[in-house]
Design a protein around this nucleic acid. Structure first.
Lengths: 223, 223
DNA sequence: GATACTTTGTCAAGAAATTATCAAATTTAT
DNA sequence: ATAAATTTGATAATTTCTTGACAAAGTATC
């Protein structure tokens, strides 16, 4: 009797976040190529297009298996589809936005997310003045209804566009009601249980980096 | 006779962007400590607070010179001020927002940038329906007035919240009229001359990373 | 004021990421 | 069909980033 292999977990090599972070950019360039009806591309061509080394491109793609062919290069459409799958864009993700301020509304109105399978399902806010307003085809609901809504709908992602004070206390509610991932625009680090994903967008951090690079360049000029 | 040293330009060690990227987070924690009137902190304490190694903290700070003292640790306020200076937050940066859509308005209304010395000076859009509207104390102007405005005011930063097609063609105008840095929300890579800083905020890339991490975790669970 | 304790700054080691190199596979040209 | 050119995937070399270790310098205690 053969046992043992049945439960063998394929120890997949962990892909570094550095690699993952580059995939969306590859996808963007491949999408552009597809629109231009370009059928194939070599790592060398893509390299000069994207300003990264050809070696890195091949290395990155090879983390997921051989997508290319010697002497030919990569088939644009095939590669595009494979990267889409890797990024989980081959199936839909429902999301709710919590915080119906300017930023929340901006994200709710952003149609391109839908094209990638991110479906805007609900929006919540504490402010009574906002309740009932429409953002696209979604009506803003009071925060009290969030829990029930999450239980009655299959929502993967919560987008947090509320001040940091509110954000921290909300995590438990979200996680307890099935949220798998948080796209966090609040300027605070969230503490989530193992298995819940957090992606931070700290806009002011980004602006500070820009500020540093301005100063650095000016200082180096002065010398 | 000793010559040579006179013209020796202090070859400052280039600080890696990895380090710079961590500075805003340090600043945030130090700000919180300051608010709690905590006077001093050791790398060890900060380490457990921020979930990074104490060694990395000391290494990071030491890139800029010794901010601490053996046996004592770091003075919170002093360290806060020094990091602020490094990030160029000790003087103001004026910015304009180009693109008065939802995202542009959201950023224009975000008051916290002002606290850090980023001053909202102007807003421009192509859409005639938006011209004249107020965003805080700034009136939306037509794109035709952008060039003159940039010449007549000292603006460091242009915030691009327009679709990518418009963004690429705008770079030359911005750079020719004194813009030193672009905070780019358009989903495209901008080609700028040496010395002009670009910080990209590619929201859909960020969302895709989140999507990958959701899939990855679910897949690993299934096995 | 002497001693024990704390904690930095620095240097070395280790790990991770990037780049270079090249054999093997395939395509293109003759 | 054969030879020349192209290009991947894999491995090795290099570089960068992170972590560990510890002497030196300070603080706190008795």
């Amino acid at each position: 009797m053969f046992v043992g292999n049945a439960v063998t977990v394929m120890q997949e090599k962990e892909i570094s976040q550095a690699v993952i972070g580059r995939l969306p950019r590859y996808l963007r360039y491949l999408g552009d190529l597809k629109e231009k009806n370009i059928e194939r591309i070599s790592s060398q061509e893509l390299s000069s297009l994207m300003n990264v080394t050809a070696s890195q491109i091949r290395q990155d793609f090879n983390n997921f298996g051989g997508f290319g062919q010697q002497g030919y290069g990569y088939n644009v459409e095939y590669l595009y589809d494979e990267i889409s799958k890797i990024l989980g864009l081959d199936h839909n993700h429902n999301f709710v936005i919590i915080g119906a301020g300017n930023l929340g509304k901006a994200l709710g109105n952003y149609l391109n997310f839908e094209r990638r399978g991110f479906i805007f399902k609900g929006m919540f806010d504490m402010n009574p003045a906002l309740i009932g307003q429409m953002v696209r085809d979604v009506q803003i609901k009071p925060m009290e209804e969030l829990e029930v809504f999450l239980r009655e709908n299959t929502i993967d992602i919560a987008v947090l566009t509320i001040p940091k004070t509110g954000a921290v206390g909300l995590v438990d509610t979200l996680v307890d009601n099935g949220i798998k991932a948080i796209w966090n625009f609040a300027h605070v680090d969230l503490d989530v249980p193992e298995g819940v994903q957090v992606e931070n967008v700290h806009l002011s951090d980004s602006l500070m980096k820009l500020s540093y690079n301005i100063s650095r360049y000016n200082d180096s000029k002065e010398q």
